[in-house]
Amino acid sequence: MQVERRTLLRKLVCSLRGRMRMKTVTIKQLLSFSVLAFVVSILPAKSYAELPVPAHITPPVGEHESPIVPQPIEFPHDRHVNDMKINCMYCHTYARRSKVAGIPPTSKCMGCHKVIATDKPRIQQLTEYWEKGESPKWLKVHDVPDYVHFTHEKHIRKFVFDEKFPVEDVQQVCGLCHGEVRGMTVAEKKKPLNMGFCQRCHEANGGPGDCWACHK
């Protein structure tokens, strides 16, 4: 199996953080971590071709770096998106119907994972939740302030359905604001999602300029 640099790096950083919190980190541990980190970082990165930008959209401009949000289960987007070729809207099914895209219900995960990859620790974690009758408590990554009214539905309708854009390639549209999710394990925020970012895109693509369209 191909080693993924990003994933490994992230894992390393996360575990280091955990140790730092416990305050029992020794020089030795630190050293070994740094050596490991170095080794991992020089591993060849798995690279993808840039996602093409759909022709009918002027893409919003902006980059953002943010710390990785620790999720209860480290969901590998890359496996699902890239390797399995699962459409975004298969799981985030509310995106075309509601303001929120929605986290897939646990039943949807279990629909496959009752049989697939049941031996993996992450899947076992998931199964545990399922059997308890609970859903994992995910943490929001792409969050906008509470005075912002953002609706996925309208954006999907405008950029995908109204334009007869092939739904299989919806990733290209989602990626404009969510970054290249196919290269991430847990989702990371890659775009600033601030007012300037939204504003420039609205201007370029003829979105509403009315404050109350987005502010509540």
Binding site: M195, G196, Q199, R200, E203, G209
Partner: peptide, 11 residues
């Protein structure tokens, strides 16, 4: 500072 006329990307 919002009462000052500065150029912002928020238009």
């Amino acid at each position: 500072y919002w009462v000052l006329p500065y150029v912002s990307d928020r238009g």
